[in-house]
Simulated scan of single mutants.
Amino acid sequence: MDEMDKENTKINDENNDSSEENEEDNYLVVGMFLGMCLGMTVGNLLFKNIGIGMSIGMCLGLAIGSSIKQKK
């Protein structure tokens, strides 16, 4: 690397607007996982269709998981 590339890399690293710093921690993935599992079970028992139950469970898990904030 020449001097100009090193300087450009340094500037880009400083100006990197990472979204990780602005994100709040929540239980989104855990809610989706549990929603899918419970939705598949309920969908199989009530609707006799796993796909419908999984879709409903995933949406509910996503909504509930994203509303609960994690403690840091």
Results as ranks from 00 to 15, higher is better:
E21M: 09
D17C: 12
G57N: 06
C37Q: 03
M36A: 11
L38F: 07
S19P: 14
F33S: 07
M4Q: 14
Q70C: 09
V42F: 00
K69H: 05
L38K: 01
D5M: 07
V42D: 03
D13K: 15
Y27Q: 10
L28D: 04
K71T: 07
C37D: 05
S55W: 01
K48P: 11
T9P: 00
D5R: 03
D5Q: 10
C37P: 03
N16Q: 15
G31N: 08
Y27M: 13
E7L: 11
I52L: 06
G53E: 04
M36T: 13
D25L: 14
M32F: 04
L46V: 10
N16R: 15
T41Q: 09
S55H: 01
E14T: 04
A63D: 05
L46G: 03
G43E: 02
K71D: 05
L34H: 02
D13R: 15
G61I: 03
L46R: 08
S18I: 12
N12Y: 15
I11S: 03
V30Q: 13
G35T: 04
L38Q: 01
D25E: 13
M36G: 15
Y27P: 07
M58C: 12
M4C: 04
I64Y: 09
L45H: 08
E24S: 12
V42A: 10
T41E: 04
Q70M: 12
E20K: 15
V29D: 09
K6E: 11
E24T: 14
N8K: 10
M40W: 01
G57L: 03
N22L: 08
S66C: 08
G57Q: 03
E14C: 00
N15L: 14
E21H: 11
D2V: 05
K48I: 03
N26C: 10
D2L: 06
N12T: 15
M4W: 02
S66M: 07
L60M: 13
L46N: 06
L45R: 06
I11Y: 03
C59P: 05
E3G: 08
N15K: 15
V29I: 13
E3Y: 09
C37H: 02
D17Q: 15
M54V: 09
K72Y: 05
N49S: 10
M40K: 06
K6T: 07
M54Q: 06
N26R: 02
V29H: 02
C59A: 13
I68G: 03
G53A: 03
L60V: 14
E7H: 04
I11G: 00
L28H: 09
E7F: 03
V42W: 01
G61H: 02
K48Q: 11
I11K: 11
Y27I: 13
K69I: 08
I68P: 04
D5V: 05
T41S: 09
F47G: 00
L45I: 08
S66L: 01
K48H: 13
V42P: 00
F33N: 01
G61A: 08
I56A: 02
S19D: 14
G35Y: 02
N22H: 09
E24Q: 12
N49P: 08
L46C: 10
M32V: 05
D5E: 13
T41A: 14
M1F: 10
E3K: 06
E20F: 15
E7D: 11
E20C: 12
N15D: 05
